[in-house]
């Protein structure tokens, strides 16, 4: 997902950049009548607005039809494993901290003080999923781990001085 987002953004941003550079490069020289340029320029815009709208609708429907967050308990049936994760300034309390791979794990997230973020990292540079943790609410994050191993839990909502040190580990073991 990260790579798709990155590549898509890079392509579109580069496209914007190229169009800017192209227009700016051709802005000097002998001026052309404004009406001509604007007629030609705006001829393209109407259709483009429609393209953008249609693309937006298609992407929105495509990404939202199956609700993208595996996070609402009322969605599917009961999860295979339920984990209670409680955040406080500045530590995690995760019970149990060992879960099976290939099963649906529901993390029920609580906070005893301020807003925190619960993010699961496969290694230091790959986020698997996350949710906000908020006092007074229980957020339910559902994850199915494909690969066994140790997953780091980092806090992804600024929560005070030791925010960066608020870590824990969830062990994923191969299913029986």
């Amino acid at each position: 997902m990260q790579q798709v987002a990155w590549e898509l953004s890079l392509v579109l941003m580069a496209l914007v950049g190229i169009v800017f550079l192209w227009v700016c490069a051709r802005s000097g020289g002998a001026p052309v009548d404004a009406a001509t340029v604007s007629a030609r320029g705006y001829r393209w815009r109407g259709p483009l607005v429609w393209v953008a709208l249609v693309a937006g609708v298609v992407i929105a429907i495509g990404t939202l039809r199956h609700w993208p967050l595996p996070a609402y308990a009322r969605d599917a049936g009961a999860p295979d494993v339920v984990v209670q994760a409680t955040a406080r300034q500045w530590s995690w309390d995760i019970v149990p901290d060992t879960v099976p791979a290939g099963k649906t794990v529901e993390f029920q997230l609580h906070s005893t003080d301020v807003n925190h973020g619960f993010a699961l990292y496969r290694d230091a540079t790959h986020v698997v999923a996350q949710a906000q943790v908020m006092p007074g609410y229980v957020n339910r994050l559902r994850v199915r781990f494909d690969q066994p191993g140790e997953y780091q839990v980092l806090c992804l909502e600024y929560c005070g001085i030791a925010h960066a040190n608020m870590r824990a580990v969830v062990k994923v073991v191969a299913g029986s």
Binding site: V23, V37, R45
Partner: peptide
């Protein structure tokens, strides 16, 4: 993108602006 940026580009395009 399609109103402000587009408008700026159309305004600039072959305008002979001195940069």
């Amino acid at each position: 993108i399609l109103v402000t940026a587009w408008g700026a580009l159309v305004n600039l395009h072959r305008s002979g602006a001195k940069w």
